[in-house]
């Protein structure tokens, strides 16, 4: 529903969204550069590549938040608290929303624009990863049925980022207000279709549970020394367990 029905705030949220094609080009270039150097040292693996992709996506999420309306008004200390609490949700949402908006059935669309057919994902990947993929697919399907669009995903990202339950925020009231405003904009955008709105919010609790599972999975791989070090992904994982 473009045009007069679009709430002003939804338009503002959409303007903050990075351009998908630019992101694709940037991350692909970075991955290629890294792979070339890995090949020289003979230590390339699919898992390392996925970690790098996740790390680069995380960087783009931080950049999105940093330059976004409302968030840029916060002090860095509050910005950090909010991001530490929701980085994995935003990361999973990024992957899921890409499937819902642009993906094809039976394959996983990566941030680089490449498609990986599910038959190429190894069954021996382990029970946690297997469960993550299965539950992720179910969530994609639910959001697909709900026909969630770019506008709604843009609102949802702000709902997640401005979490008033985060402890020790200096500007707690401001965060709470933005959260309520984002919720209001989403409800207005869904044309006060409460059923749709409620289903969408239910999907968010599934997203949160998925992100916890994803963090556990990454922590395990990290403990067994499989994660590349010195990147944002690792820093976020450490901050959570600290």
């Amino acid at each position: 529903p473009q045009g007069p029905k679009m709430p002003q705030l939804v338009t503002e949220f959409l303007l903050c969204d990075p351009d998908e094609l630019q992101l694709q080009t940037k991350i692909s270039a970075r991955l290629q550069q890294e792979q070339t150097s890995w090949r020289k040292h003979g230590n390339t693996s699919t898992f390392r590549l996925l970690c790098l992709m996740a790390d680069q996506t995380l960087l783009s999420i931080v950049e999105w938040a940093r330059t976004s309306i409302f968030f840029r008004q916060l002090k860095v200390s509050d910005q950090m608290k909010l991001l530490y609490s929701c980085w994995s949700e935003l990361l999973i949402l990024d992957i899921i929303s890409r499937q819902v908006l642009y993906g094809k059935e039976g394959s996983l669309l990566l941030v680089t624009g490449e498609e990986v057919h599910f038959s190429n994902i190894p069954f021996h990947a382990g029970p946690t990863l297997y469960s993550l993929i299965q539950r992720g697919l179910k969530l994609v399907e639910k959001l697909h049925i709900l026909k969630v669009d770019r506008q709604e995903f843009a609102c949802v990202k702000f709902l997640i980022l401005f979490n008033p339950d985060v402890k020790d925020l200096e500007e707690h009231q401001f965060v709470e207000r933005v959260h309520e405003q984002a919720k209001g904009a989403l409800l207005e955008y869904t044309l006060c279709n409460l059923g749709h709105f409620t289903h969408l919010l239910l999907c968010l609790s599934e997203l949160r549970s998925l992100s916890t599972l994803a963090e556990d999975y990454l922590c395990c791989r990290n403990l067994s020394g499989e994660m590349p070090c010195n990147n944002l992904l690792i820093e976020m994982l450490h901050a959570k367990s600290a």
Partner: peptide, 18 residues
């Protein structure tokens, strides 16, 4: 613990005007 937060702080503190 502070040192662990270095990268995120750096990214958020970045000054675009420079």
């Amino acid at each position: 613990k502070k040192k662990d937060n270095a990268l995120l702080r750096y990214l958020l503190d970045k000054d675009d005007t420079v």
